[in-house]
Amino acid sequence: MSLGGGAVASPRSQAFRMAGLHGYAVEFSPYLPGRLACAASQYYGIAGCGTLVVLEQNDAGVHLLRSFDWNDGLFDVTWSENNEHLLITSSGDGALQIWDTAKPTGPLQVYKEHTQEVYSVDWSQTRGEQLVVSGSWDQTAKLWDPAVGQSLCTFKGHENVIYSTIWSPHIPGCFASASGDQTLRVWDVKTSGVKVVIPAHQAEILSCDWCKYDQNLLVTGAVDCSLKGWDLRNVRQPVFNLLGHTYAVRRVKFSPFHATLLASCSYDFTVRFWDFSKPDPLLETVEHHTEFTCVLDLSLHNPGQVTDMIKLHFT
């Protein structure tokens, strides 16, 4: 599958299986091509423990590099932007955990301030910042500096659970959040306040992402099965509306290599690839799962590598 702007080819997949776990999030390392981390939970995150799985992919296949267990389900994971060995996960007990993949021990630090499940965590990519944002079912987002043992700020305004918090790759101190209150919100950490509130769907919004080539463009994916694009300069109506999924859109990601390409995964068991600049935007539908598809990421190193093409089977 090419997401670099060329023709779409049939994907070649490699599989990794881990019994008893359900994958909730996956992210490629920004440092090492072929290395990725997955946050997983037992019993679909409803009960049981969680596991952080660190994988290595090469020509011989996908191999387990290291795994770490937590006493509650893990729902999201983000790599450090200043240390290739560090990861942060978020969990169902309201906590964030910092892990060192070079050390086969428990977490280096645990932050627990949220009062309900933490469904999203993201590490800022803008130069000069070392900030983390988390989003929780307690309807708040929190700002963290991993060097400080407590949150720096709490953002309130959402009227339902927060499913996704994503930093802008362009604007320092700016992040977006998607919520069950059917809104997409953009926040400024310098003012501790919301900049934009977009009533983006008439359904819960499960995922959002920033375009890597346009600081004003975001995409949302929702329970109404649609993906919508939003230009922050005019939010009265979406700039694109992508239809094709038959169940809720669980995660959506813009391509790191092409301004108009993106990928989505859904509870309809499919992964879909889109080019919203085309009259017929759906490029490919990949049907290789037999259960809800929640995990999706695009490699920052290889235009043709998508984590769902390295099939992660949690059975």
Rank of each mutant, 00 (worst) to 15 (best):
W144N: 06
K190H: 14
R185M: 08
V197Y: 03
H201G: 05
K278L: 15
F314Q: 09
I205V: 13
F257H: 02
S168I: 06
R12M: 15
C153K: 15
I98S: 09
L227P: 01
E84K: 07
Y31E: 02
L131V: 01
W167E: 06
D69H: 10
I162K: 06
W70R: 03
D188I: 07
M1T: 04
L86W: 04
Q139Y: 15
T101Y: 11
V148Q: 06
L184S: 11
L96Y: 02
S10G: 11
L218S: 13
V133W: 10
R236M: 14
L312C: 05
L152Y: 12
L282E: 14
H114Y: 11
G34M: 04
A147K: 04
A203M: 11
E129P: 05
A9E: 15
W167K: 04
G20L: 14
K156S: 15
G73H: 02
T307C: 13
L232I: 02
L242S: 04
P199N: 10
T285I: 10
A222K: 00
C265H: 00
L261T: 03
Y119C: 11
A178T: 08
Q182F: 08
S13V: 11
T101E: 09
A39E: 04
A248F: 15
A222S: 14
L283H: 00
K103P: 05
K228A: 15
P107L: 05
V295H: 07
D100I: 03
